[in-house]
Design a protein around this nucleic acid. Structure first.
Length: 748
DNA sequence: TATTATCGCCCACAGACGCC
DNA sequence: GGCGTCTGTGGGCGATAATA
């Protein structure tokens, strides 16, 4: 095994050729005013700022936004070496100009300065304007938003957790802060405390607003969340995916004030009343007159640890997470865990050596060994553990490190049986075990004395069991409607009228790629395990399937294909959805010809359309007399060609509008007739707001407007019925509709 | 608006180093 | 050689910005 040395050359590669020493990365992080963690994560292949893609040749669009993170990312350009001319460098320069970034290319490095980025100011200005406009509009028409909310989206199951902290139910949003103040006051010192507390409070507010709903529309949730000042993604995660704010997770694992005080008292009892470093020095002076002890080479380090330990005793009394306490006193979490496990720094041990407690400490370790449960079940033997794995987590056995995982568990279990009833073990025992088992000293000591457990238990906690995976898979399959491979997906897409539009979606290739990976993921999911197990079976990277592993999300293309009927359409026909929701799913299919060769073809489609039955339609019938579907269609086409227009609302759907001057008496009836005719062929429409125009002579006149809902059916009307190109501009191209000429007389 | 990409933090463990 | 401490690795998760 290669020796790992401090300061070794990190095999962190960028551009596939340059290597950086870890020290250099740190230096870089310091210079860029970023955390080392972040920069290191960028250097790893799977996590890198998007701008690096530009450098490595994966052309993705460079963009900057006003957030702090992105500005940091932009500064990452500092690492570009300009000594070699390269098209990528040119690209960065061009982009920097385009984005109004100041560049500085001294020392062979491109530096980008965007802290006072104009983009940011522009954005904040427009935001303000929009907000003002929004307010004005709200004053004028308060009902609009509510109606919109109720009309769209389907209700979804509420899966929101009622929060508890240590078994205490949260009953109002102040409870969280109260409990923290009382039991975890140390948590208040965290930098992110205000943020995590606000998240907790927001979560409770939303819970209160939503607790009486079993199902609710996402739009409603988001409207509520917006009212409470909560972001939409976060709200959706809480309400529909059962995500709980981090504050609960942390408090669950944190040490409470009462626990902390108890631990502190126990430890204090063993250090013989020492409270400050002064106390230690006084005793040292007694033991080693003339300050001899200070000559000891390690005195400084020993003093440091002793001081930190005494600080720890104070801090533990305030409660908090291990990491939180560690950062508060400026130590590594591992050090805090050792303190918690009963290790007392040597400087203090020395001066209390006469007391019994410390004598025990000098020659014995305190035992603290625990056996974790697997799925709420106590482990009774390693054989049983193997059985559970074989039955519920068979995929685990394919892990490369499986033998060592189980061996760790075996040894840990033996240790548990042997030492669980002992309070102390003599010094040297961990070392002896380390030699006997070949496991590292730290691992043995962690298990025996610090209550740590082999990693396999954590993995089993987090893994999907076979049954859970099967359930997840079944749930997915019911949504997929048979679309489980690329060939089925392509077949479904071939059968749908909007095939062309789908194939020309922006970034279609990427959609296709994600769909391909999704099907691999489905195969990998069978058998369960951890994300990495599923990824391994699917021959994909964990990050590529992560979003499908947790929530029930489905790639766009697959979702579209799944909503298309499985049965093939008749010869020469295609499936046409009457509704396209959010560009992702289709509903209410009919079959349509792709080419009109005779009036029969038009009738074929008309027969499948259902005339609207609404009070408005009844009203129109009384006013305009009855009208057949086909006459409705012809009337609609006539009005459309004379005063109407198509508006593309999404890639796979379009709507029609009609405008007419208010100056003419017949205009209102013209519009009503338009709506009536549309209603005849099943498309609802309504009058919109009037617009006011000024002609060349300065006269004002008002124009009335009507618009239909958006539907792929109108795409068919445009392309197949009227023979207009998909990208028809405002002015009409010649209509290619010979069928009209051959249509029966009574249609016109 | 749903999905995807990214980041910060947590946890357990391994290896190196230097003092006792 | 035993032990404490520090640094580094890698897997995991929730939160949220970006995107289409």
């Amino acid at each position: 095994m290669a020796a790992k040395r401090q300061g070794k050359i990190a095999t962190l590669i960028i551009q596939g050729k340059e290597r950086f020493k870890l020290d250099e990365v740190k230096e870089l992080a310091k210079r860029l005013n970023l955390t080392v963690d972040k920069v290191v994560s960028w250097f790893r292949e799977e996590s890198r700022p998007r701008l690096v893609d530009v450098l490595t040749g994966n052309r993705r669009k460079l963009r900057l936004n006003p957030s702090e993170e992105s500005r940091s990312k932009a500064r990452f350009h500092n690492i570009i070496d300009t000594s070699k001319e390269d098209s990528r460098i040119t690209e960065v320069r061009q982009l920097s100009r385009k984005r109004h970034l100041t560049t500085d290319e001294r020392d062979g490095i491109i530096r980008l300065f965007d802290i006072e980025h104009p983009h940011r100011q522009i954005n904040s200005e427009t935001d303000e304007k929009e907000e003002l406009q929004g307010k004005n509009e709200e004053n004028l028409k308060p009902a609009i938003s509510k109606k919109t909310i109720k009309r769209r989206g389907a209700p979804r199951e509420v899966k929101m957790w009622i929060p508890y902290i240590r078994g205490v139910k949260i009953c109002c949003e102040e409870d969280i802060e109260k409990i923290i103040k009382k039991e975890f006051p140390g948590v208040q010192d965290r930098d992110d405390y205000i943020g995590i507390l606000r998240n907790g409070k927001d979560h409770y507010k939303l819970l209160r607003a939503i607790k009486n709903y079993g199902h609710i529309k996402q739009r409603e949730v988001e409207a509520m969340a917006a009212g409470l000042g909560i972001g939409n993604t976060k709200a959706a995660a809480w309400v529909f995916y059962g995500v709980v704010p981090a504050v609960y997770r942390w408090l669950d694992k944190a040490i409470s004030k009462s626990e902390g005080v108890r631990i502190a008292n126990q430890l204090r009892a063993e250090i013989d009343g020492i409270k400050t470093w002064q106390d230690v020095e006084e005793r040292l002076d007694e033991m080693y007159p003339n300050g001899e002890y200070q000559k000891n080479k390690t005195f400084k380090t020993r003093k440091h640890h002793a001081t930190k330990f005494l600080e720890f005793l104070k801090e533990i009394g305030k409660g908090g997470t291990v990491n939180g306490i560690a950062s508060r006193i400026g130590l590594r979490p591992a050090a805090v865990r050792r303190f918690l496990g009963g290790n007392i720094p040597s400087a203090i041990q020395d001066v209390v050596s006469s007391s019994e407690g410390s004598r025990i400490h000098r020659t014995f370790h305190r035992v603290n060994i625990v056996l974790p449960k697997v799925r709420e079940r106590d482990i009774e033997s390693i054989h049983q553990l193997r059985e559970i794995i074989g039955r519920d987590f068979p995929g685990f056995r394919d892990r490369e490190n499986f033998p060592s995982l189980v061996r760790d568990a075996e040894i840990h279990y033996e240790l548990f049986l042997e030492y669980r009833d002992k309070r102390f073990i003599p010094q040297g025992v961990p070392t002896e075990l380390h030699k006997r088992t070949g496991l590292s000293f730290d691992k043995i000591k962690g298990w025996l004395c610090d209550g740590q457990s082999p990693i396999i238990y954590r993995l089993l906690r987090e893994a999907l069991s076979c049954k859970e995976a099967e359930k997840k898979l079944d749930k997915l399959l019911t949504k997929l409607n048979g679309v489980t491979s690329m060939s089925v997906l392509e077949y479904r897409l071939r059968n749908v009228y909007v095939e062309y539009e789908i194939h020309h979606l922006p970034r279609y290739k990427k959609h296709q790629e994600r769909a391909r990976k999704f099907f691999l993921f489905l195969k990998g999911l069978r058998g369960g395990g951890l994300l990495s197990d599923v990824a391994r079976r699917a021959h994909l990277k964990p990050d590529e399937i992560r979003s499908w592993f947790r929530p029930d999300s489905i790639p766009n293309l697959v979702r579209m294909a799944a909503s298309i009927p499985a049965e093939p359409p008749e010869d020469g026909k295609k499936w046409l959805p009457l509704i396209s929701t959010n560009k992702r799913t289709f509903k209410e299919f009919i079959q349509v010809p792709t080419k009109i060769t005779s009036a029969e073809d038009v009738l074929y489609v008309m027969k499948q359309l259902t005339t609207l039955e609404t009070p408005k339609m009844k009203e129109y019938e009384r006013k305009f007399d009855m009208m057949s579907k086909i006459v409705g269609l012809m009337y609609f086409l006539g009005a459309l060609v004379s005063d109407g227009y198509f508006v593309e609302s999404s890639h796979v759907s379009t709507y029609v509008g009609l405008s007419a001057s208010k100056a003419y008496n017949w205009s209102r009836d013209f519009g009503r007739g338009f709506c009536y005719a549309l209603g005849k062929i099943g498309i609802s429409s309504k009058r919109g707001r009037d617009s006011i125009f000024e002609d060349e002579e300065g006269n004002l006149f008002t124009q009335m407007k009507w618009a239909s809902i958006s539907t792929p059916l109108l795409l068919w009307v445009r392309r197949t019925l009227l023979g207009l190109e998909a990208s028809a501009p405002k002015t009409w191209n010649p209509i290619q509709a010979d069928w009209i000429l051959d249509a029966p007389e009574d249609w016109r």
